[in-house]
Structure formats: C-alpha cells, structure tokens
C-alpha cells in the first residue's frame, strides 16, 4: 500500500512537471513581459522556482497576484461541483439499482432513455431552459448569483452554505436557504453528467452482481430483495463506481465553467473567459495550471480512496487477483 502511494505520487509529480513544461513553452510564445535570456533551461529554472513559491504572476486586469484572485473565487466553483456530486450520488445510485434490477424491463428502459437524454443535452442550453421555466415562468428560483443582495455574509471558508451558518448575523438561516435556492438550478445542470455516469455504472455492476451465486444463497436464506441489495449487492457493486466518478471531475469542472457563465455565478468560469477576452495571459496561464493540477489531484485522491475501500483492488496490486 505504502509503495503504491509513493508510486502514484511519483506519477503525479511527473505529470505536473510535463504540464509545467507545456505551460512554460506556451508562455514563452505569448508573454513578452517575462524576461527571456534566450537560454531555455535557465528560463525554465526561474519559471519553475517562481511557480513553486506560489508566484503565478500578476493579473493585468485586477492588479492582484493571480493566485490570490484564484483562491478568492475558486471556492464558489468547488461548492457547485461538490453539490453536483452529492446530488448525482443521491439520484444516481437508486436509479442505477432500479435499472439494474429490471434489466430489459420498462423501468430500465425509461431510466436509460432519460440517461441518454442527459448525455446528449448541451449544458448551457439545459441551463437556459431551466432558467426560462423555473425562474422566469414560475418564479421559484432566482435567475443568477450566489446569494441575495440583501444578505451581508462575511467570507470565512468561501463556501456560502458553511459561511452563512457560521456567521453571527440574525438572518443567518434565511441567508442559508437563500443560498440553497441560488444553488438549486446550477447544481441540477451540473449534476446531469455525473448522474448519468453513476446510473450507467451502478446499473452495469448491479446487473453483474445479481447473477452471482452468493446472491442466490442469500435468496435461499429467505432475505427479501431490499435486504439482499443493502447487505450484499451494494457492497460489491459500489466500489468499482468510485474511480469512474473521480474521472468525471475534470468534465464537471469544465461544465461548471459554462454553467457559471449562464447563471452569472462568480466562479472560475466567467473569470477565465473574461481573462481570455482581455488577453490577460498570466491570469489565463495561472488559471489553467491551477485547474489542471486540481483535476490531477482529484484523480489521484479517488485512486487512493478506491484502494482504501475496495479490497479486491488491493489484491490486484499485490498480484493476488
């Protein structure tokens, strides 16, 4: 296990190194204010030292260090992504189980049709449709932003849901529900991708597990379907779902950037797009490195989590499969 973690970290560092080389070469092409001495190696050395000390350069648009800007807005994006994952798990696992149990049946057909629609719908259009129907037509949800303008919540963690509860303001519960309402539509849009993935995976692995002999043994013992699923089926069906969920993180993060643009969510998406309009290259590059590094980190974390949860995977590692 320890050796595996070291190996995984090694791959992570090498990937980051390659990423920094690509970013460096791009920067040499574009940015002129970076003093080039003509010697690539010494330039790269200075570049990587600056990066390692957290100096991503100064944003031309805001005048702040790029890292400060990113850290200020990234929690908004992260909050959205995490909520989307929570929703996808809450919806995806039960739907996947129902579909897997009735493979070929009407329920399965219905769920898979909806899943196919979910895969095919462009996120920004879905967001606009939801906005049109729920915000403008019915008026149930706010159109844009993270929280109503009436509430003044001091930033502590950057996650609005936590900040509102931590604050000492008298209206903190109202503020909490208001930020929940603001979260609802963007989360729904963002959750479509991981939800479809969870449904597919759970459906496949439940369908596979239910044919196995230990399930028949459980049936022979007289357990009902619910008990079988809860005690036996899910324990074996869920672990393989984890890595695929982790791999979705990158896609969710980029989709979040689009969703944020539609809902005027003050996250990293509008910030990046704006930086591209303004040709603010140090901001673009810093944002890109930050997002890519974050995605890599998330992938590594899910790999390790999978290893912790799934004993079969650990066996594979030691060649005992």
């Amino acid at each position: 296990m320890f050796i595996y973690i070291i190996r995984r970290l090694n791959v992570f560092v090498i990937t980051l190194f390659l990423l920094s080389v690509v970013a460096f070469l791009l920067q040499r092409q574009v940015i002129t204010d970076f003093v080039n001495t003509g010697n690539i190696l010494s330039d790269y050395q200075r570049y990587i030292l600056a990066m390692l000390s957290g100096n991503f350069g100064t944003s031309l648009a805001s005048g702040n260090p790029v890292l400060t800007d990113i850290l200020a807005i990234f929690p908004a994006t992260l909050e959205l992504c995490l909520m989307a994952f929570v929703v996808s798990i809450l919806i995806g696992i039960p739907c996947g189980i129902f579909a897997g149990l009735s493979r070929g049946g009407a329920v399965d057909y219905g769920i898979m049709t909806i899943t196919l629609m979910g895969v095919s719908v462009p996120a920004f259009w879905f967001a606009m449709l939801l906005m049109m129907f729920f915000s403008l037509h019915l008026g149930w949800f706010p159109v844009s932003g993270r929280i109503g303008l009436l509430y003044d919540i001091p930033v502590i963690t950057g996650f609005n849901l936590i900040d509102t509860l931590l604050s000492t303001k008298p209206y903190k519960y109202e503020a909490f529900f208001d930020s929940l309402l603001h979260l609802a539509l963007p989360t729904l849009v963002l959750a479509t991708i991981p939800t479809t993935e969870v449904i597919r995976q759970v459906r496949a692995s439940i369908g596979e597990e239910m044919d196995k002999n230990y399930i028949k043994a459980a049936q022979a013992k007289g357990l009902n379907t619910f008990q079988i699923i809860k005690r036996h089926g899910l324990r074996n069906a869920l672990p393989p779902v984890i890595p695929s969920l982790g791999l979705q993180f990158g896609r969710v993060l980029t989709t979040a950037m689009i969703t944020e643009t539609v809902f005027s969510w003050p996250g990293i998406g509008p910030w990046m797009v704006n930086s591209i309009y303004l040709e603010d290259h140090s901001a673009i590059q810093g944002g890109m490195l930050f997002i890519a590094a974050f995605v890599l980190l998330a992938n590594m974390a899910t790999d390790l989590l999978h290893l912790l949860i799934d004993p079969l995977k650990r066996n594979e590692l030691y060649g005992k499969s």
Partner: peptide
C-alpha cells in the same frame, strides 16, 4: 488528465 473543453479553451487562449 486535462478535460477536452479546458484543453480547447487553453489552445483558444
């Protein structure tokens, strides 16, 4: 490891 859309955005930038 970089999602395709992000890669496209970087190239566009």
């Amino acid at each position: 490891s970089i999602p395709s859309l992000l890669l496209a955005i970087i190239i566009i930038s």
